[in-house]
Amino acid sequence: MRFNDAILGLVILLGGLAIVLQASTFPATHGQVYGPDFFPTIIGTGLILSGLVLIVAGWRARAVTGWVDVAGHRIDRLVDAGLALLAILAFILFVDRLGFVLTAGLGMYVLLVRFRGGHWLSSLVIAVVLVLVVDWAFRTMLLVPLPQGHILPRLPW
């Protein structure tokens, strides 16, 4: 997904502006020349200037590059990428309640079936084995307390 530099430049410029405005609300530190707003203001200003440069460059090049270039992305591929992102999002939202094994296992299962174009049963086996191995290794060897959740029972390790 390629955008013309002018569009990105505008986003960067607005981002820089937001940083500078937000930084201007930080209270000055008593008795000091440089406060907590000093560095954010420099960073924001830098982003504004870079954004301007990109806007100019993008505007000049608009005839050659157009505005947005989504060519080469097939719909099914976009769905693939979207599912990968959704799997992460689901992990973030549900892992504390459903537990690691269930959340990650379901995510893995969906992705495996989708990417491999079927293979329902072997994907299930892969997903279950994978998640159990990771759960075991992290819990016992690395002492990472992966969320247990309230649904599945505690595994024997």
């Binding site: 990968a84 992990f91 495996l112």
Partner: peptide, 23 residues
């Protein structure tokens, strides 16, 4: 790769989780 990519994603999630043990 069709299997490897989900595995990588899983390891990424666990790795990012393990830093502070939070989502």
């Amino acid at each position: 790769r069709e299997v490897l990519m989900p595995v990588i994603l899983l390891l990424c999630m666990v790795g990012a989780f393990a830093i502070n043990n939070t989502v």
